[in-house]
């Protein structure tokens, strides 16, 4: 790992900053409908918050919060949400990824709106997890665990 520079300022500042970044990431994911942003950007920001944590506090700190196992589960889970929504649409009579057929008691356009939200969340989770995973693997040359 990149050798950590022990500095109280950095650790404290990062500890303060990280929740804000994460909140912002969530905001970007949720607010992709009406402003720039969406799953990718939000996911990357969430991932970046963890990367910042690695840089400021080291690998072990991250391991405590986001174990490798959990990370891999997140990788798959986000995509499962995405693909699952499509399959759900398939089951309820639409074509694949046709959110208009999701069983939600709203108009078709609004159902699509919600469908988009659903998949943005899925994308966000996957992107976050994968970004963390790639960074951890590259920065530790896989010598963890």
């Amino acid at each position: 790992m990149i050798s950590r520079y022990e500095s109280i300022i950095i650790t404290t500042l990062c500890k303060l900053l990280i929740p804000v970044i994460q909140l912002y990431g969530l905001y970007v994911i949720m607010h992709g409908h009406s402003s720039p942003g969406g799953g990718f950007q939000g996911g990357v920001i969430l991932g970046a918050s963890f990367i910042l944590l690695v840089i400021s506090h080291g690998l072990d700190e991250v391991k405590k919060r986001m174990s490798e196992k959990l990370n891999t589960i997140f990788c798959s889970f986000g995509l499962l949400i995405y693909a699952g929504l499509g399959v759900l649409a398939l089951i309820f009579g639409g074509n694949y990824l046709d959110y208009g057929h999701l069983p939600i008691p709203v108009t078709i356009a609004e159902a699509r709106y919600l469908g988009i939200l659903g998949i943005e969340i899925g994308v966000g989770i996957t992107v976050m997890a994968v970004m963390i995973s790639i960074f951890l693997d590259i920065s530790s040359v896989g010598e963890q665990e």
Binding site: G38, Y82, R112, G115, I116, I119, V130, S133, I134
Partner: peptide, 30 residues
Amino acid sequence: TATPNVVTSVLADYRGYDTLGETTVIFTAG
């Protein structure tokens, strides 16, 4: 789609399948 951001609506709905593929690319990379 009731979505004002056209990019989002195209990305996630009109061409949602591309985005599934794209997320899969990320997953693959991971």
